[in-house]
Design a protein around this nucleic acid. Structure first.
Length: 369
DNA sequence: AAAACGGGGCG
DNA sequence: CGCCCAGTTTT
């Protein structure tokens, strides 16, 4: 494309997008505020998580922690509890740490400078741009997957958007196009268009406010901008969990802060060793990991949970404790709690499913043998 | 059941 | 810069 033509195109983007956004934007809780703290919380929650899932979490989180100071003062356990089920728990840990940085280094006021925002734990280039433009009206872009796709199509950039050259080119185009007026609305419009209209597959060009400007569409190359990543297939793995009962309480254990599901609570579980029965696995797990002799009862439920390249098939069994003193080894804490208290603990999604299916009042208590 | 998706952190 | 993390959604 000739520079003059590209410049004309770039100038058209903002008015088109702003007008479309004014008509079509969804009414979302975080669009009713410019409080940088709230914008930040919403942006972090929205990383890798859908709008519909985020809304109730956002409301609860802000009710519990209305300011950065409140968040900084809360125990991490409480923060994780309100995050439980959203996944990607390092986001919650970073949010908590960053709130403490805001209190310690910025007097509790959210920093305004892009560099200072960018320096907060868990805030990368994208999130910093989103906060700076939406909350502070700075003329900076925020480049997420949606934005990359829309810009790649509009300018018909067909290279792999994840490689350095193409990525830098698209970022340069993103910088150029941000308007001085309402940069935050413009950025949100671009992302909203990417998620609602200029979708990865089957883009709805017929209802796109940019379709007559879109170079990919002009050339019939809308699909050409996608460059799927090669990835090895997911493998299936089994895991067994034991819901151990003692005097009306069940045993949960807290994982170390580092690693997968850091700081979260879970039912004792592990992957069976080759050739071992579930019965043997659980007997060994409780003896070695928790100092308990248990009688393994009936299988309660099995469910699947995907993480990384693995599809975990989790089978849960009820267990009755017959002897032993509870201790932790791989965990940082263990606790016996009444089933109705489980809601007060941060459990990862698959263990929450176990609670819902087995331990809520409507579910039966496990048979004992 | 498999594949696609994607911000941030880190080496 | 490129890989890894920890999931959900789409096909």
């Amino acid at each position: 494309m000739r520079p003059a033509i590209r410049e004309a195109l770039v100038c058209q983007l903002a008015p088109r997008l702003l007008s479309w956004f004014g008509r079509e934007q969804r009414d979302l809780p975080w669009r009713r505020t410019r409080d940088p703290y709230r914008v930040w919380v919403s942006e972090v929650m929205l990383q890798q998580t859908q709008v519909g899932t985020v809304i109730p979490y956002y409301r609860r989180f802000l009710r519990a922690f209305p300011t950065a100071r409140a968040l900084a003062a809360a125990p991490l356990d409480e923060v994780l509890r309100l995050w439980a089920g959203l996944g990607y728990y390092s986001r919650a840990r970073n949010l908590h740490r960053a709130a403490q940085v805001i209190v310690a280094e910025h007097g509790g006021r959210f920093p305004r400078a892009l560099e200072a925002i960018r320096a907060l734990p868990g805030v990368g280039e994208y999130t910093a741009g989103a906060i700076a433009s939406i909350a502070f009206g700075e003329r900076v872009p925020c480049v997420d997957g949606n934005v990359l796709r829309v810009l790649a199509r509009v300018h018909c950039v067909t290279g792999d958007v994840r490689t350095g050259r193409t990525r830098r080119r698209l970022e340069a185009l993103a910088w150029e196009a941000v308007p001085a007026e309402r940069p935050g609305d413009y950025n949100q419009a671009l992302m909203e268009l990417g998620s609602l209209v200029c979708r990865p597959t089957d883009p709805a060009c017929g209802e796109c406010c940019l379709s007559d400007l879109c170079e990919a569409r002009r050339r019939g190359r809308q699909r050409g901008v996608r460059t799927p990543r090669k990835r090895e297939g997911t493998r299936r793995v089994r895991a067994v969990a034991g819901i151990a009962w003692r005097r009306g309480c069940v045993l949960i254990a807290r994982r170390p802060l580092e690693g997968v599901w850091g700081g979260l609570w879970e039912f004792p579980n592990c992957r069976p060793v080759e050739g071992e029965t579930d019965f043997e696995t659980l007997t060994r797990l409780f003896a070695e990991g928790f100092g308990l002799i248990v009688e393994v009862g009936e299988r309660l439920v099995s469910l699947t949970h995907g993480i990384m390249h693995e599809r975990i098939e989790l089978a849960a069994y009820g267990c009755k404790v017959v002897d032993g003193r509870t201790k932790a080894s791989a965990h940082v804490a263990v606790k016996w709690v009444r089933p109705e208290e489980l809601a007060e603990y941060a459990l990862p999604a698959p263990h929450r499913k176990l609670v819902l299916q087995q331990l809520t009042p409507s579910a039966r208590t496990p048979a004992r043998r």
